[in-house]
Amino acid sequence: MFLYDVVTPAEIEEMFSLPEGSVRRDLRRSKFRQSEIRKSGATWLITLREAKRVYSDYEDKIQVKKDWNWVRNYIDSELNPVLKEEIADFLDDAPFDRIYELYLDGIEGAGIDDGEEYISFVEWFYRFKESAEEWEED
């Protein structure tokens, strides 16, 4: 994640022509994924991809490779302490490496070839987690 890939609530409101205070309201309403936001002093920082997801139904896609080392390196580059904790909680007692296998299975299961686009790991994880939780409820 690069410095210019994060935005403030005021920047988001300007970007999406939202009324002043909209983003702070949505932060209180938990519309943002916790691994995609953080507070720095008095300022909220939100990943641009998360702002796009919340306010324009953006689907984050990347070019992928069906390669264990690529998947591992890519996922590691996406991890932050909050996301890592969410993944560990989701995996329960399974080894953390299981998440790499699951994402690679997702790529292969979608019939994606090297260099084709697939949803980003973060997007995949939250969708996968949500579908697993729905399955458990049934």
Rank of each mutant, 00 (worst) to 15 (best):
K52D: 03
E20S: 14
L79Q: 03
R28M: 03
N73K: 12
I12S: 04
Y55S: 01
K66C: 15
W124K: 04
L48I: 13
Y118W: 15
K65W: 06
D138T: 10
R29K: 14
K31V: 08
I46Y: 07
V71Y: 02
N69P: 00
I62K: 09
E36L: 08
L83F: 03
Y126D: 06
S35L: 01
Q63L: 06
I112E: 13
A110G: 14
L3G: 10
L18W: 00
R98C: 12
E85V: 04
K31W: 08
W135R: 12
S17N: 15
E11R: 03
L3A: 14
Y103N: 08
L79S: 00
E36Y: 01
D67C: 02
I107M: 12
F90P: 08
T8C: 00
V64C: 06
D93S: 12
R49K: 14
E36F: 03
Y4M: 11
F32R: 00
V23C: 04
V54L: 05
Y58V: 09
F32K: 00
D113P: 04
A132T: 08
I75L: 11
A94P: 00
F125V: 05
S30C: 05
K39M: 02
I46G: 07
P19M: 11
E36W: 01
Q34A: 09
E123A: 09
V122T: 13
D5I: 00
V7Y: 00
W135H: 14
K66N: 15
W68I: 14
D114P: 03
K31E: 11
D26P: 01
V71D: 02
V6R: 10
L48E: 13
Y100V: 02
N80A: 06
S120R: 07
E59Y: 03
D93W: 09
P9V: 00
D89P: 04
R29E: 15
I62G: 08
K61F: 04
D76K: 15
R53W: 02
S30F: 05
E86S: 06
R49L: 06
R29C: 10
F2S: 14
K31C: 06
K61D: 04
E59Q: 10
D76V: 10
F125A: 08
D114L: 01
K61P: 05
K84F: 04
S17L: 12
K61Q: 12
K84D: 07
V6P: 00
E20C: 07
E134Y: 11
A88G: 08
R24N: 11
W124I: 00
L45T: 02
K84R: 13
I12R: 01
V7N: 01
Y103Q: 11
I119K: 15
D5N: 15
V82E: 08
Y4V: 07
D92R: 09
E14N: 09
E134P: 05
S22L: 04
I62P: 03
E130H: 11
E86P: 03
W135D: 14
E108F: 10
M1A: 12
I107F: 11
W124F: 15
W70G: 09
L91M: 08
N73T: 14
V54G: 07
Y58E: 08
E137Q: 15
E85R: 13
N80S: 05
R25V: 05
D89W: 07
R28A: 04
E134D: 12
Y58R: 06
E14H: 13
